[in-house]
Design a protein around this nucleic acid. Structure first.
Lengths: 338, 338
DNA sequence: TTGTAAGCGTTATCAC
DNA sequence: GTGATAACGCTTACAA
């Protein structure tokens, strides 16, 4: 904790003022048992001498750190940075500090991050899981010790956990229905790994719409990948040929959709004339592409706020009801999927 | 620090093993004075019983938190989220945790964040200042107590401070020279507030190029704003008229440049045919606009790494040489400024 | 090689 | 209304 040289403690104040350390401690936190006079005297002295409570000592004594941990796959992804921003905002508003780590989509790194957070004695943990994570075992130390834990967005498929999610399945259903309503029957769907719940749900929504609208499922029109730009390109290059040309392409994120758009342009194909294109995640670039990419806007700001609220409820009330909160996304229909 | 119920301490281990707590403490950290036998015995017991050191207690005792603080204007800005991602990565690699706060461009919020970080006893602080911050007074508590402090990107104009910056002036000079070389003499420059060093430097570079190329400075061709989408629109709407039409527009960030592009399109103006456009910051959307926006790519990843390295040097070696590291940006010339 | 004891700066308990 | 005192769980002289 660095030198913090000129640093004074309640004992220094106590000595200078000829009172006890406990009196100082109480005066500083406005304990009603302390006389007005003493309280003012102590506070003035503290103020004048730049007294700063040692939170570490207080934490140790109180068995509480007023700190929450956040673990996400990556900080530099627009949707996640929005959520983190929101988490930071509401957490500080309620007097909590926030410790952050990224798993970089690695199950192992995620596990280590959890242990670090545990050792740091965070009062609670907020997590969006890595792409390699398919259950909640990485978080056993929190679960078995009953330390508040809330998952958001990418969450384990287990409703005994506290979770804040968006309606992936329904959004995906609506996107697909819209595509079908626009006359497309050969719809190619690029999804993330379906052992991750959000992607499983998007697949469910897709299938449901197909079924309802009487469009037959076709294995050749479905592909899973890690949704990076490169994977997107590979698949686009394979699919955007005269023989395999779909009527519409629906991607589980906008990065992949962009790859399709770019490959299309390189091949002289036009969107939406030659094929419709629909994304998911509504990146900042999507609304300014030509054509403007239709996408699904996830409520990052709200998810962050709700996740923090839920976590602090658990921390402060110690109630243990578990709950899954669903915050709806909104479909941003633009030009690419007419 | 939450219940962490089943939690055992070195004393529990000591009792069970009939050794002293200090022996356990030493064994756990491989102190060479402890016998192989005892060490293994202790470690096995610790392992088997899921012992986790209480970092808070250790911090209090060692007067060190192994934690660094980061204060940025906003987390959800691409460039900053890249830097934060990089900071998080390298800090954890060296065994430090990272506490994060955003000032939301407010001088006051920034000051409060500094105090929080101070009270948290972070071992060092990394900051990119708010738009309202023009000197280093907000950080006096760190400076006067000699707690390691490194500024990055938006830094105070004081070379007695540790700073990691990019070559804003030179980049701006090169952009302007390029614009002039392309035959433009009526160049409109939208900049951020020039009492913030990065913007002052970009203005300097702009002026230098003008001077060198014999283009006269014109007050009507320069405007400062907060570089938001809305401010950009306002200025674009005012400037993109037949009477005031410039040959080129150079914006100090891509968001503002995008506003110009959009207003231009709404008015049937073409870029770069009717006017050239150049941005700064290289947002993810810039390379995929039509036309592709020329911009300046700042080395976020490197800046984060270097800032952490510098901070840890200060923390661990306690050397107090101050230094300003400059990491060059790269001009991404694309289609908008031909 | 191991143990004892002091102390990091708070807060909580009990006393007066 | 205030004071002593004992923790919180760890590290580190200093002893043995």
């Amino acid at each position: 904790m660095a030198k913090h040289k000129g640093h004074i403690t309640i004992h220094d104040i106590a000595n200078s003022l000829n009172v006890s350390a406990s009196t100082v401690s109480r005066a500083l936190k406005n304990d009603k048992r302390i006389s007005e006079t003493t309280r003012l005297k102590v506070k003035k002295f503290a103020q004048d001498h730049g007294y700063r409570p040692n939170i570490i000592a207080s934490n140790l004594r109180k068995q509480k750190t007023q700190t929450i941990g956040v673990i996400v796959p990556r900080i530099d992804r627009h949707f996640l940075s929005t959520i983190i921003s929101s988490i930071e905002h509401y957490a500080h508003q309620e007097g909590y500090s926030v410790l952050i780590t990224q798993s970089r989509e690695s199950f192992e790194a995620e596990g280590k991050a959890v242990q670090t957070m545990f050792n740091q004695r965070v009062d609670g943990l907020l997590v969006s899981t890595s792409l390699e994570t398919t259950d909640e075992h990485n978080f056993d130390s929190f679960i078995s010790n009953d330390i508040p834990l809330v998952f958001f967005d990418r969450v384990p498929d287990n409703d005994q956990l506290n979770r804040v999610v968006t309606n992936d399945r329904e959004s995906s259903y609506l996107v697909t229905r819209r595509l079908i309503a626009n006359g497309h029957r050969k719809i190619f769907f690029v999804n993330g790994p379906s052992d991750v719940l959000v992607f499983k749900n998007r697949l469910r929504g897709f299938k449901q719409a197909l079924l309802e609208q009487g469009v037959e499922w076709n294995d050749h029109l479905y592909r899973e990948c890690d949704l990076t730009r490169l994977s997107g390109r590979d698949i686009a290059e394979e699919i955007l040929t005269p023989e395999t040309m779909p009527n519409a392409v629906y991607c589980s994120n906008d990065t992949t959709a962009l790859s399709f758009l770019q490959v299309a342009q390189e091949r002289g194909l036009r969107v939406p004339e030659d094929f419709s294109l629909h994304g998911f995640s509504d990146e900042p670039f999507s609304a300014v592409l030509t054509p403007k990419l239709s996408s699904v806007r996830q409520p990052g700001e709200d998810m962050g706020r709700v996740a923090v609220e839920r976590l602090l409820e658990l921390i402060e009330n110690k109630e243990s009801r578990t709950e899954t909160v669903v915050i709806p996304s909104v479909i941003k229909s633009r030009e690419s999927d007419i």
